[in-house]
Amino acid sequence: MDNYKDDTFLARWLDQSLSAAELQQLERSPEYPTLLRMKQNFEKLQSPRTADDAILAHVIAHEKIAPVKVIPFYRKTWIAAAAMIVVLLGIGFYLLQPTRHAAGNGEMYAFSLPDQSQVLLNAGSQASFKSWDWSSNREVSLQGEAYFKVAKGQKFTVETNLGSVTVLGTQFNVKARDNRFEVTCYEGKVSVASATTQQIILPGQRIVINESDRILATTKAIAPEWTRYELLFENASFTAVLAELERQYDVSIDSALQTQQLFSGSIPGNDLDAALKIIAVTYHLDLKQSGNTISLNPLP
């Protein structure tokens, strides 16, 4: 029935895209006269037309429907790509950021490190560490004072601006204030390094390093006194004592007293009145307090 080469043959004939050989073959076939006549007849056909101006007018008379505005945030691929990079950089930057913890004046703040080592920050202190790199690099940088209970493991380092403390797994306190670098060991072995010295201290020992000298002292405490709201001073300067009180009680203390007399002793860390009285009596000062502002001036 169908003796054409393929099932698009006649379509290609209409389209005049048959090869010369194919065309010759078709022209010799018995069907060709009818096909040709059909083709000629198509040419007499005319596209039906209707009055389009009326329809156009009718169409345009319709109100446009305001689109629901979906404004694509990123209209172009490259903007999307750029945004993606920014986001990824942001996430990366965020993840690489050291984790930071801080205790404001008048408060303490406890946190855990990724290996469950514990840190208790004393008032007015802050610590930061890189959590993403913790397993290979146990390093905390500290400003102020903190008590560490370190889980056993690799080398653990506390960096301060006055020196560093390296341990293997122990409990110790680090205090780096002004020019005074003070490390107390409660358990294990602690290696303390500053710009001028290096020393290993054992449980119950405390090392105090300041500009001029280095004092090795002992303690019977099993944890820093400040964690029990007791402020212990040993040969501390008057200004250091006032600064510690300011941090612990979040107050501001003025004093006109100039003295080289060092202070040793214990002051309550949770009873401001008692604490101030001790200082006032020791240094013979007149105590005046209004709100958070305290003045301690020499008695007339």
């Binding site: 169908d2 054409y4 099932d7 698009t8 043959f9 006649l10 379509a11 290609r12 004939w13 209409l14 069907e31 009818t34 096909l35 059909m38």
Partner: peptide, 20 residues
């Protein structure tokens, strides 16, 4: 496009048969 050509081929084939 191939499907269009098939339809047109089929149409011509069918018309030619009917007419003849």
């Amino acid at each position: 496009q191939k499907a269009v050509e098939k339809r047109i081929h089929g149409a011509l084939l069918s018309m030619r048969e009917q007419i003849d």
